[in-house]
Computed example of a mutant assay.
Amino acid sequence: MQPADLDVFDLRLLAALQREGRAANAALAERVGLSASQVSRRLAQLERSGLIERYAALLKPEAVGLSVQAFSNVSLERHVEELVHGFEQAVARHAEILECYSVTGEADFVLRIVAPDLKAFADFLTQRLLRIPGVRSVRSSIVLHRIKQTTELPLDRVGTR
């Protein structure tokens, strides 16, 4: 995907949306220096172009009873299309897996997993993740304390037209 052709107002608008996705167009207009109708048109265009993927509420996992978070490095037995595709499909079916990345290095995939407690995490690992066909090994790190987590992209590093 090519980088979007964004001007300074698009970047300001996107930055404001990243901080407060529920802001009204009038409030966004005030923050970025445009009229509410201009903001509305720009938002519609950014959504149509696929630049804005979706809107979401960010929940605190602990507040809903998911107090264990782990990063798991998964290695497959072999790198054949059938095993990789099967693994990716299995990952998509497990709600406990919030993110999955295909990576370089010692592991083939890195997963971010949540669970209510350590027992539930261990059960998920042994009863589900390790039973996916082709999984050779899983090495997990349990999060002790979150230092930084953001969904905001550094738009000040993006060039403008």
Rank of each mutant, 00 (worst) to 15 (best):
L76Y: 10
L144S: 15
E77K: 11
V74K: 00
S72P: 02
A90G: 02
D108A: 02
E106P: 03
L118K: 03
S49W: 08
T151I: 12
Y55F: 02
L28R: 04
K60I: 14
N25H: 15
L6R: 02
A29P: 11
A29Q: 05
S72F: 09
L129Y: 13
R128E: 03
K148I: 14
F121G: 05
S75P: 01
D10C: 06
F87C: 00
V143W: 07
I52A: 01
V135L: 03
R31W: 12
I132P: 12
A24Y: 09
Y101W: 07
F87Y: 01
L13K: 04
G134P: 05
D123W: 14
Q2D: 07
A107Q: 04
D117N: 12
L58N: 13
K119M: 15
L66I: 04
S40P: 09
A44V: 14
V158G: 10
S37Y: 15
A24Q: 11
D7F: 12
Q2R: 06
G65R: 04
E99G: 01
R48T: 12
L58G: 03
R157P: 03
A24W: 05
P133Q: 06
V68W: 07
K60H: 14
L28A: 00
A44D: 13
V143C: 10
L34P: 07
A56N: 00
A24S: 12
S37F: 14
E106Q: 13
L118C: 02
A90R: 13
P133K: 08
C100M: 10
Q69P: 08
A107Y: 04
A36P: 09
L155A: 04
S40K: 04
G65I: 01
L129P: 14
